[in-house]
Each structure stands twice: as structure tokens, then as C-alpha cells.
Amino acid sequence: MDLGLENKVAIVTGAARGIGAATARRLAAEGASVVIADINGEGAAATAAAMQADGLKAHAVAGDITVAADVDRLMAETLERFGGVHILVNNAGFPRDGRLTKLTETDWDLVVDVILKGAFLASKAVMPHMIEQRWGRIVNISSRAHLGNPGQANYSAAKAGIIGLTRALSLEEGRYEITVNAVAPGFIETEMVQELPHYAQIKERVVRGTPIPRVGRPDDIADAVAFLASERAGFISGETLHVTGGRYAS
């Protein structure tokens, strides 16, 4: 299926590794020029270089997605390098887990700012360009955790906020042929997840509780994002696509 992404320009935040890197590679494989945005500049550069070595169009930009000046610079570099922007994937985020009584204010602020404020700033930056061209796709990465996870009040709240942001922007911007959707991954086997303490036991428990008895892969999310970013999804907006193997409960 031709997704119609040839000559489109995409920004993927948090794309140095994991879901972001897989998504960037998938969009580029469909013909898009992709900006790899990440606070980890070395990681972003390495991901972009690996994609370029495979003949894909990629460019790395280092910066903090929670800082407006960095987001403005990200937009300026995207426009200078590729001449426009059509797709934004708000993927940047990470957990800082702890029960509420143990959760620090810093842990709350870091998680909520990167996930939610970052998506706000990046969406605000790209929107004038999408409105002017009357075409755009924003795909926000939420999580199954939006349903609530014990020990993840900050992460669950931020990922639920992403769904609210998605719905609000879809209502605001639909008249410009801009769609805004979310993908809610389940347990995805990324480098970050594999670094968790007791990862093997966590994986075993998750597989037992998942109707499709395996953990997710970054490419599972990348494929969903690529569809929602495509011409084929032009009448889908405000939706949250759960990519969880059928797992909803904790």
C-alpha cells in the first residue's frame, strides 16, 4: 500500500532510539525526509547517520523539547534543511516511577513537562506551517498507562493529558485538513525497557496477561504511526489507537 509519504517532511521527537528511532526509519522508508530530534545529540546523530547509510533522508537536531527556544531552532533547522514540515510525531517521554507518597516534585515535573509541555510546544511550532499548506499530520504517542498504572501517577497523568490534547487539537485544526491522532502503546521491548530492574520477570508477567502472547516491538508502533501520518488516514482524527496486543488491564 502506497502511504503517500514521498516528499513529505517529518519531525520525530525523542527519536535517538526506541520507538522514536523505529518510527523515523519507517517514515523515511516510505519516502519522507525525517528530522531526528532528541536531547541526546550524539544518539540522534548516530541514528540519522545509520539511516543515511541505508539511503534514507534524515537529519539530526539536538535540543530540549521543553524549552521554547530549542523548539524554535528545531523548526528553523527543519525548514532550512528540507523546506517545510508536514508530519509531527510527539514521541519524547520517559517514566520516573514511584508511589505517590514517594514521588518527588522533580519526578513529576520532569515527566509531565517532557511528555505534555513538549508536545504542546512542538505542535504550536509546526501548526502555522501546516495551516498555511492546508495539510498536516500530528501523531502523539500516549500509552496504555493513560488508563492508570500503580506507581506511575506522573506518567499516567501525562499520557492521559496527551489524549486530551489530541482531541482538542483535532477539533481546532480539522478545518485546515490537519489530522491529530494518538497511538497508545502497550509493553514495548525498547532499550529503555530492557534496562529496567527485573526486566525478565516483568516481561514474563506481561506476556501471560496479553491476549497476543508476546511483547510489542518498536516496529509495531512505527507501523501504526506511519498509517496515521499517511494520505490513507485523511478522515481519521481525534482518535487513540491502542497497540497493546489486546492488553488493557494492568
Results as ranks from 00 to 15, higher is better:
I162T: 00
L241K: 08
T13A: 07
A229V: 00
D220I: 05
M130K: 03
A229I: 07
D107T: 02
M192R: 08
T190F: 10
A182M: 14
R26Y: 14
S142H: 02
A168P: 00
H198W: 13
V114T: 15
A160I: 08
R99V: 13
A49V: 11
V206S: 04
H86N: 15
G246T: 06
L88M: 13
F120S: 03
R208A: 15
G93C: 13
R232H: 08
V243C: 12
S33C: 04
R217H: 13
V89H: 06
G20E: 13
F235W: 15
H242R: 01
T23A: 12
V71I: 07
A48M: 00
Y155P: 02
R134L: 03
V225C: 03
R232M: 12
V183H: 05
Y248G: 02
V35C: 13
K159N: 00
V139H: 07
G136W: 08
R25C: 10
A249C: 01
E105Y: 02
P218I: 04
L56P: 13
D220Y: 09
G18R: 02
E132H: 12
A60E: 06
H86Q: 12
L88T: 07
R26G: 11
P218F: 04
E195P: 00
A76E: 15
A58S: 01
K102E: 15
V9W: 05
D223A: 14
L196E: 10
G43F: 11
W108R: 06
T210F: 05
G148H: 07
A249P: 05
E6M: 11
I162C: 05
I138E: 05
G93A: 10
A200S: 12
